[in-house]
Amino acid sequence: MTAIDPTIAPAKSERGWYKRNEIAVTPWLFLAPAILFFAFYVIWPIYQSIAISFYDWDGLGEARFIGMDNYVELMDDSAFEVSLWNNLKWLLFYLLAIPGGLFIALFLNQTVTGIRIYKSLFFFPFVLSQVVVGLVFSWFYLPNEGLLNNILGFVGMGPINVLGDPTMATYGIIAAGLWPQTAYCMILYLTGLNAVDPEQIEAGRLDGAKGWKMLWYIIIPQLKPATFIAFVVTIIGALRSFDLISIMTNGGPFGQTRVLSFYMFEKALSEYGFRMGYGAAIAVVLFLIMLVFIAYFLWSMWSEEKGR
């Protein structure tokens, strides 16, 4: 007969491993699906893209390792340069959606009969598919029959072919993109305006602020969270511009309206493409540009949280 010390052994088996570590483990269990999916669908493809960008591969045969050759070729590729500049134009001019949205929001932030209808009408372009927006605008720009040229003709200005002119086409597409994006920013600001503190406005008014001064010193600072979100979605929208270009000009005339994402698609996946390595190299460059903004967004959110 062996003597069992009843005080030690049962105590251990009473609480299982999970029970003992519950507090530490549970959050990870809840996070696990998201982490798995994120790793599998985001991190792994990023790694793969970077890896493929060092190869010469048509998607069918053997991939041939060529080191940095794809990137060297990019440096010397005028089409890539054009795409890069166009991306910059998109980033810059797409931001016009923010002040545009703010002013429409200020204008609509009043109580008159039927304001809900006006608000939804202004919001309506955002609900439209980008493809529809692109089609509508390409008809609007049509060189002979288009509405734009009819209007211009009415005030005595010559017809212009916005989408056929390599210097104007990109701006024409950005203008089309601004239509839904402004609506998006507007809705963000409308919600933001609901949260503006009436007491501060009252106080400002007592101190004699009105008009622009009221807007600049009292209203806009309180709209900072809305502005931040509007900035984030607009930048991301600008970098993702693809559908409008594909619908309105298909990258033309002669490739002058391409942006990086469109150029990558053309090189890697379109009918005449299938240079997977080269396409991946373009994607990596686009990723690095996005990384700058993502880092900035994360950093400002983090410092916001710390300041609280």
């Binding site: 056929g164 033309g252 005339p253 002669f254 490739g255 053309e266 005449y272 493409g273 299938f274 240079r275």
Partner: peptide
């Protein structure tokens, strides 16, 4: 044109042809 020339050559060339026409 785009069946006789290799795909990549055809694509670049046709862009050039369009540019030439304008």
């Amino acid at each position: 044109f785009d069946r006789d020339f290799p795909a990549e050559m055809a694509n670049e060339a046709m862009q050039g042809l369009q540019e030439f026409m304008v």
